[in-house]
Design a protein around this nucleic acid. Structure first.
Lengths: 230, 230
DNA sequence: TAATAATAATAGTAATACTATTAAATTTGC
DNA sequence: GCAAATTTAATAGTATTACTATTATTATTA
């Protein structure tokens, strides 16, 4: 019996790859090993030659899947946000109370993602590390606008909009739902980075404290419609 | 008559340069032109060869001032945060009311910096663009911890702590003053980037709206001691 | 004016981020 | 089960980058 989850696939913009890496064994090895290797080496030190050695394959073969390592990073980012979006939808749509729903959403995006078994070759822990350390580099570059118009960041933006919508359902008068949503997403990554590397300016030693911070932020920032739970 | 301001110099960690660029004409040309050139080309496309051509000098001469372009970016970042810190101190210390003081602080860090005349060879507009687009790259790399222990980010961190202190003076019971301070600094840069490139997820079209967002954030997040101004 | 320091010019190196070509292996259609 | 088509591997090569080293030239200062 197959579980529902194992049939799910994150739909990623075709602009992000030359050949769909999920369509072959080699492609899947490229994905799973690049995630480990980028986490290990950092994005700057990572390259396709090293990845080729790692998967006992050739540099040039990897270029048949990804145009360059920048696109690979954008692909991996889309994958991560896609997994988060999936969890967000599955775990929040049944919740009727807008506040409770938003609470759950903030929990999902700020706490550690539990592995979903859809893609067993994807190590979510490594992937999350990559997002914290490298996601910013996927769009902080001169070609952002071009990449953006190709849809390379659409999953991320859709996730922001979903959360913004939830915010507005809690407080329709709040003037900055999108700004707040993107502040939560980006800000939580930033807090994780800071608590790992700049401890002197961090209040959030643990994962759950990052959640506490942003949860407190939304609950104090928004005028609730009801006196909801938590 | 010399103004007070023109005697001020931002004190930048010696680890960030080989030879102090403020100590010679060539060094100053390196600074002023690198700021323009990095803004123009983006950090990835920028290199010392191109900068050398720009200032009618030689690549190898630039290496006598900066170890590499990464360090130059960290230097420029320190310079920017130093200028902001200077303004923050000058413009807030006289303010007695903690809320008013914090309000002013948020204004300074989220609104456009007016040029201070201390360093006429520094184009603050270009520098600010660089910070918005590239600051994240100055610390998102494998050597963060090493660079951090050398003090390369100390001005930035000190600025966060100053704001955190102001937050605590407004609400001593608030649990996350440092997280909030760094969220304001990092978050405002993020909002500027987003409103320039990802308009669909932005509520803040103008500079002043970014200020409004973060100002509302602190005023709703903190339990005020008094019913202060604004 | 001699000594010292700063700068410019030139050359060179190892690594990177690719591209092109061809050969070998694998898959697929009939 | 074989031919055709596709995919992958191996090799080689290129332009650029991020430097380093060396020496010559110029400017500064004692």
């Amino acid at each position: 019996m197959e579980s529902l989850l194992s049939n799910i696939r994150i739909n990623i913009s075709e602009c992000l790859y030359v050949k769909d890496p999920e369509s072959s064994k080699l492609g899947q090895r490229i994905l799973s090993n690049s995630i480990v290797l980028i986490d290990q080496l950092g994005f700057e030190e990572f390259n396709f030659k090293k990845l080729g050695q790692e998967i006992q394959s050739n540099e040039s073969s990897i270029y048949r899947y990804f145009e360059n390592k920048q696109k690979l990073l954008q692909y991996l980012s889309a994958l991560y946000w896609g997994i988060l979006e999936y969890r967000l939808v599955v775990e929040t749509t049944a919740i009727q109370n807008p506040e409770e729903r938003l609470y759950k959403a903030v929990e999902i995006v700020t706490k550690n993602p539990e592995s979903i078994s859809t893609q067993p070759h994807i190590n979510l822990n490594n992937l999350r590390n990559i997002i914290i350390a490298e996601f910013t580099k996927s769009y902080h570059q001169k070609h952002v606008d071009e990449d953006n118009s190709e849809g390379n960041f659409s999953i991320y933006k859709r996730l922001v909009l979903r959360i913004a919508e939830m915010i507005q359902l809690v407080d329709s008068g709040f003037k900055f739902p999108k700004s707040l949503a993107s502040t939560i997403l980006d800000g939580s990554l930033h807090q994780f980075f800071i608590s790992a590397h700049f401890k002197s300016i961090s209040d959030t030693a643990s994962n759950s404290e990052v959640f506490d911070f942003f949860n407190q932020m939304i609950s104090r920032l928004l005028n609730r419609m009801t006196n909801g739970s938590k």
